[in-house]
Design a protein around this nucleic acid. Structure first.
Lengths: 166, 166
DNA sequence: GTTGATGCAAACTATTTGCAGGCAG
DNA sequence: CTGCCTGCAAATAGTTTGCATCAAC
């Protein structure tokens, strides 16, 4: 489902103008990374991206991976979040659609959801406290459908729960 | 507002029976730490606790601070959470009351809130996705009442936003 | 040619862990 | 006295940064 490079997918164009607007340079590494991010399955972390690139012969240093992801976050093409484990997760931002996550503690599945009424409720809470919201994060941890039946590994699950950093 | 030691505040008793139930030992360090946690202002982090203890002449090693906080979390007397900066935050758990947080990006104020309808909505979302919730975290970042008027430091604010790890 | 980018290795931060000696039960 | 506990220092893990070199504009 990856668009041919020749087409210069929309995301790449957005990135290019972002770079130009800041007098930053369009390097081969940046192009490779962007291509990978938008070819890749939605959710990933810095290391997965780094390895995926390496496997395709595009060995980009970790430092550059982090630096470039940072740029993509700044220009809004990528979203960064933390799922309670101890490293950052990234996802290609789909247009301007916003969503939150359900996270399976057994298989790490990530389910996205969006509820207008939840967003409205948040705004209401903010109003009540005279608080001006700028960002929010809402995450629910538990077991996805597939993992509820399974005899999930109790000790491991308990351990993950206790390690949850949220 | 700190109860005299002689009274053995409820929290300390809870901790003691927790320790006994696991054949763990009631050491001086653990007692000092518990006293500090429940004497202290609600929200704190490992380092603040470590320093507060040191200032009172109770120099407990960082390692022990972390280890003991861990026990307190396990026995439910303390709650651990992450506010998008890069370290854990703790708070003495008030009975079994649950709440979520509004976090001011300018002054770090933390405002607690609880909304039954929000909790209900969450359950509904879980049902819709056949997801069994075990834990959730809901945080809204922005400006508290006091900081909305102030000419808040734009660059700094933007920086904090971009560093948000949620 | 400037100026910003890259890779490497070293630095960092918050937290964890191995170990030897200490103290609670 | 046995086994958990402590402090220390070293180890982690993820991420960031300084620096010399290199490439985009």
């Amino acid at each position: 489902m990856r668009k041919p490079k020749a087409e210069r997918p929309e995301e790449q164009q957005r990135f290019e103008s972002f770079l130009r607007s800041r007098q930053l340079k369009l390097t081969g590494e940046r192009l490779d990374l962007v291509a990978e991010v938008f070819g890749q399955s939605h959710h990933f972390d810095a290391d997965q991206l780094h390895m995926a690139l390496k496997q395709k012969g595009k060995a980009i240093s970790r430092a550059t991976v982090y630096r470039t992801l940072d740029l993509l976050v700044q220009c809004g093409l990528v979203r960064k979040s933390s799922f309670g484990d101890h490293h950052a997760h990234y996802e290609a931002a789909q247009k301007d659609e916003h969503h939150d996550h359900l996270i399976c503690l057994n298989c790490d599945a990530i389910i996205e959801y969006f509820r207008a009424d939840l967003e409205a409720l948040q705004d209401q809470i903010c109003q009540e406290h005279d608080f001006q919201p700028m960002h929010h994060s809402h995450q629910i941890f538990g077991l996805c459908r597939a993992c509820q039946g399974k005899t999930t590994d109790g000790p491991t699950l308990a351990h993950r729960m206790s390690q949850l950093n949220t």
